[in-house]
């Protein structure tokens, strides 16, 4: 009598065709399951949309001066100078209006528009975040895009007032676990349009002139404009003293001829070499018979006669 479960029983075994068929099917099914999600990776829509939204926002901010529209029973006016009518903004833009024509200068931004945008954002109105969102075209019929916009120097430090407080950072901070599109635009401002220090020669003041500078600084310029009395020699020398009292000579006594002027000395890179834990140095400028000015700013870097910085736009 053969065992019911014994090895000698040759009936009711799985057919080898079935075995081969089912294993081939399972292997190919697994392969397909693995392949199918990867098939569509190149066609995923989300980053593409975010990129175009980020780029569009950067263009609106950097290449357009914006628009306001004030219409009620008595007046109906509109124009590019929305910074004068912050309650009637229809489109935000930071590009500077040209004074003569109503044409904007791309990438040349206006300081007053920048500070008015910060003003709108920091106002007591609880809806200011979403108002700006709407004026930047970030509210669409199917979703809202969150934003963070800031002005940053080329060394990565936020553009600041002379006391070191950043002056343009609006929007929420993005969470770390979501896709964020970041667009950086290089923008410029007129030299005197952003927070700065400007001191011109004052002959009633003490000579040498002494200036305490916070480091790292992004713009520090000494410009020798002209001689005071022609005929007498015109000299300048610049010394630097650090926190521990060591004095370094930045420029030994140099004579400039009236034909050389204006002489522009950009010292920001030179000064930043002396940055230490105190982040402070003292500059001593000894001069005779010259008219000069000293310009410094923590807002951006001087490129030519313009202050340049990066506008960083993040959307998600």
């Amino acid at each position: 009598m053969g065992s019911r479960i014994g090895l000698t029983n040759s009936s009711a075994q799985i057919n080898i065709d079935f075995l081969a068929g089912i294993s081939i099917f399972l292997i190919s099914f697994l392969l397909v399951v693995q392949l199918v999600p990867n098939l569509f990776i190149p066609f995923q829509g989300q980053p593409v949309t975010l990129h175009s939204v980020g780029y569009r926002t950067s263009v609106i901010l950097c290449e357009d001066p914006g628009w306001y529209n004030l219409s009620n029973a008595t007046v109906n006016i509109s124009g590019y100078n929305w910074e004068d009518y912050p309650n009637n903004v229809s489109r935000l833009g930071l590009a500077k209006n040209k004074s003569t024509e109503n044409l904007s200068t791309p990438q040349m931004l206006s300081g007053s528009k920048l500070f008015n945008l910060t003003g709108i954002y920091n106002s007591s109105d609880p809806g200011s975040y979403s108002n700006i969102q709407e004026h930047l075209g970030l509210t669409t019929s199917y979703r809202k895009y969150d934003y963070n916009i800031s002005l940053v120097r080329f060394d990565g430090i936020p553009s600041s007032y002379m006391n070191g407080t950043p002056f343009f950072q609006i929007g929420y901070s993005p969470q770390s676990n979501i896709d964020v599109e970041k667009v950086e635009r290089i923008v410029s401002f007129e030299m005197y349009d952003l927070p700065h220090d400007y001191n011109k020669t004052n002959f009633s003041r003490l000579n040498p002139a002494i200036d305490v500078v916070n480091l790292p600084i992004s713009a520090y310029r000494i410009c020798i404009e002209s001689v005071n009395f022609s005929g007498s020699p015109s000299n300048i020398s610049i010394n630097l003293t650090n926190h521990s009292g060591t004095t370094y000579q930045l420029m030994n006594t140099t004579t400039y001829l009236p034909t050389d002027m204006p002489v522009i000395l950009d010292l920001s890179d030179e000064l930043n070499k002396y940055d230490d834990l105190s982040h402070k140095v003292t500059i001593t400028i000894d001069y005779s018979n010259i008219i000069w000015y000293c310009y410094s700013s923590h807002a951006g870097d001087l490129v030519g006669d313009k202050l340049a910085a990066k506008l960083i736009i993040q959307v998600w």
Binding site: Q107, E184, K306
Partner: peptide, 26 residues
């Protein structure tokens, strides 16, 4: 489609913005 373009568009913006800024009136 265009995935390389997106990576490089920031580079293009850097170059374009820099040249436009240097070409602005002084």
């Amino acid at each position: 489609p265009q995935s390389g373009e997106f990576l490089n568009s920031q580079l293009q913006l850097y170059g374009h913005d820099a040249l436009i800024m240097l070409d602005q009136e002084d």
